[in-house]
């Protein structure tokens, strides 16, 4: 399954991130994960949100330079060696990771690893063969990171 990441081109100066977050806050869009990569005076804000289409529209309307980018979101165990196993499953098949970041869903239980790759199909196949579950936008949106039931 394919998930979608919101990417925003932003100049590296005060107020740029604030503009993005205020648009999302006003539309009640929830941010699940965020990373920023920058290169001197500009950078790219990457986000996983609960409603990527809505976020894309809202941010575009606000005049921002946005792109909706397909990424692979992998559900993985939050255990020592968990990422190691996942990454080897990809590198063994010669898949290169362009960009990646992760977030914990449930401490010591589940985490999500977001992968930007050039060969999306091949990556999905590789993950399936290794019995990893991938999430789409809807699945990501419905994840409840805090499980009351456990307490």
């Amino acid at each position: 399954m394919i998930a979608h990441q919101i990417s925003i081109f932003a100049e590296n100066k005060p107020g740029r991130l604030a503009k993005v977050t205020s648009v999302l806050a006003s539309k009640k869009i929830n941010i699940r994960a965020i990373t920023i990569s920058s290169s001197d005076e500009f950078g790219v804000i990457n986000m996983i949100v609960d409603d990527p289409d809505k976020a894309y529209r809202a941010l575009s309307e606000a005049g921002l330079t946005v792109s909706l980018k397909p990424v692979v979101a992998v559900l993985m165990p939050d255990r020592p060696g968990g990422l190691d196993k996942l990454v080897h499953a990809l590198s063994d098949r010669g898949i290169n990771i362009e960009n990646a970041y992760g977030f914990v869903l449930e401490s010591w239980e589940k985490a999500v690893f977001i992968l930007e790759v050039e060969e999306v199909e091949k990556t999905l196949e590789a993950l399936e063969e290794s019995n990893y579950k991938t999430l789409d936008a809807e699945a990501l949106a419905s994840i409840e990171p805090f499980h009351y039931m456990k307490y």
Partner: peptide, 12 residues
């Protein structure tokens, strides 16, 4: 605006 692919490498 239209060409932005969300990639920092593209911009560089």
């Amino acid at each position: 605006k239209e060409i932005f692919s969300g990639d920092l490498k593209q911009l560089e």
